[in-house]
């Protein structure tokens, strides 16, 4: 088989990312204003306050979503903030449950008292509006099939008035629905989103409809640096930055070859 240019490009990227991941080198990560804002917001929540965490993503974005979610959950549990987890996308349910359990386990938080996971409700708009009336009516049972009423945490908050806000971990436009429909109940919205979605949410951050947002692997790395817990964000930054430079190099090479060919053709 004869290798074409694109094959060499693929091989180059594969080798570059492989080497970057294997090297274990950590790059110093300057903290952006938005990440600092998110950290300050969560840090300002009094211990015992409750935060909704909604896992609004697919499994495909897990490599980017997982470090973001873990960094934020770790900070919450460390601060004594209680978590009610849920998912507006079916695939986020299992991922969200495992991540919440993992972060809670690191700080010896108890299920039912310090955190709970409600699971998935179809039709996201209906779920958001319905939760504004009653969490327990919308989720009569938690993800494990226990009656919601039997969980002490669920008796401390039954609608958006009982929570400090919602943190939407998203790889699509679901955070927008929290803004649009949760806004009816003055729900404070925080966001942890993939890099590709940043420009979608920038107008909401600027208008204050999203109180704070961290984005992508870079955001996760910055947050890990703030909480002093090395994780997937910091581990992946060398690979991501190398890949960015590789793509920039390819763009430059592609343009040079284009203009050379154009000049030769007259």
């Amino acid at each position: 088989m004869r290798l074409e240019t694109r094959h060499w490009i693929f091989i180059g990227l594969f080798v570059l990312i492989g080497l970057a991941m294997a090297s274990g080198i950590r790059l110093p990560t300057p903290i952006s204003e938005q990440t600092q804002k998110m950290y300050d917001y969560i840090d300002s929540l009094p211990p015992g306050s409750i935060l909704l965490v909604s896992f609004d993503h697919e499994a495909s974005s897990l490599p980017e979503i997982q470090p973001i979610a873990l960094a934020l959950l770790r900070h919450c549990f460390e601060r004594g903030v209680r978590i009610i987890g849920l998912a507006l996308m079916a695939e986020g349910t299992s991922v969200g449950y495992h991540l919440t359990n993992k972060a809670a386990g690191e700080f010896n938080r108890k299920y039912g008292a310090d955190y709970a996971f409600l699971g998935f409700r179809p039709q996201y708009i209906a779920a958001i509006l319905s939760m504004g009336e009653s969490f327990r009516a919308t989720f009569p049972e938690d993800y494990l099939g226990r009656p919601s009423e039997s969980l002490p945490l669920m008796n401390d908050a039954d609608d958006y008035n009982g929570v400090a806000g919602v943190l939407s971990i998203a790889d699509g436009s679901y955070t927008t629905h929290w803004i649009e429909y949760g806004g009816r109940y003055d729900l404070a919205v925080l966001a942890g989103v993939t890099s590709a979605m940043v420009t979608t949410y920038d107008p909401y951050v600027a208008s204050g409809q999203i109180k704070a947002m961290i984005s992508g692997l870079r955001g996760a790395a910055e947050y890990e640096s703030l909480i002093g817990h090395d994780g997937g964000g910091a581990r992946g930054m060398l690979a991501q930055s190398s890949a960015h430079l590789y793509v920039i190099l390819l763009i430059i090479l592609g343009n040079v070859s284009y203009f050379v060919k154009k000049r030769r053709a007259g």
């Binding site: 240019t5 694109r6 490009i9 990312i17 793509v247 763009i251 090479l253 343009n255 284009y258």
Partner: peptide, 15 residues
């Protein structure tokens, strides 16, 4: 990521 890399070389031109 691989398609983006390939496309950045072949398609992203200052025409």
């Amino acid at each position: 990521a691989f398609f983006v890399a390939s496309a950045s070389y072949r398609g992203f031109r200052a025409r």
